[in-house]
Amino acid sequence: MKAYLSVFHIRRKMELQYRGAMLGGILCQMFFGLILISLYRALYASKPQELPITHVVSYVWLQQAFFRMLLASDPDLGDKIRTGSISYDLCRPLDLYGFYYVRIMAQKLTGSLMRGIPMLLFALLLPEGWGLSLPSSVPGLVISLLALFLGLLCVCALENITMAFTMRTLDAKGVQAMLNLLMLILAGNILPLTLFPDSWQQVITLLPYAQLLDAPIRFYTGEYGTDSVLRVLPVQIVWTVLLTLLGRFLWSRNQKRLILQGG
């Protein structure tokens, strides 16, 4: 346990070093947010929808703020796999899956909090209809934080699976790019899932990608009421467990193969 904590700590520190790059990243992400919000406002002006525009705006801001959580962003790890130096990690007296899980989590958590919090503060200050609305209710906020944590566990499990695939197909840039893109679309980053056709939403919200940010955001805006807790959180938990088990299975198979091949 202590080893995992120190891995977490090191990655967190590394992520903190990119403070300069962070500022540029925040500005860029906010700019994208403003563009999307302008677009949705114009669309609403032509044809108002049942879903209030304030929900869509909050959805966009929260997606932009936690953007960093979605994308695989550890080039270090990719390099390790490509050059084969990952076999050194096999020598560590640690469970490899757990080791990378913690590593990825530290990076995603630190990266998205550092970027997200200043952005959300700014978005709260913007005028009504442009900025982030306050959460629908206090229990809604508490549940959305819980759902966000489950989403984080889920996305780390997902990325570990991507990583396992990367190890199998030596050149995985293409595969990885496609998985990333699938994630962006199905997590609601490109277009809020709430604006997808209603019939699609029933299926999409059950997929693992919707558990990352879409579910927490809907609790935040009040789209999901407190009564949906027993419906949504179990889905998140089931996916987290399933994806973790699948990831573990893939990693242990890879590990065996690596040992057999001698790196």
Partner: peptide, 19 residues
Amino acid sequence: SFFLQTLAQLVMEGGEMMA
């Protein structure tokens, strides 16, 4: 790799168009 990455580009821009 070239083929897969070209395909990924298709999915990417196709995704934008789907939006």
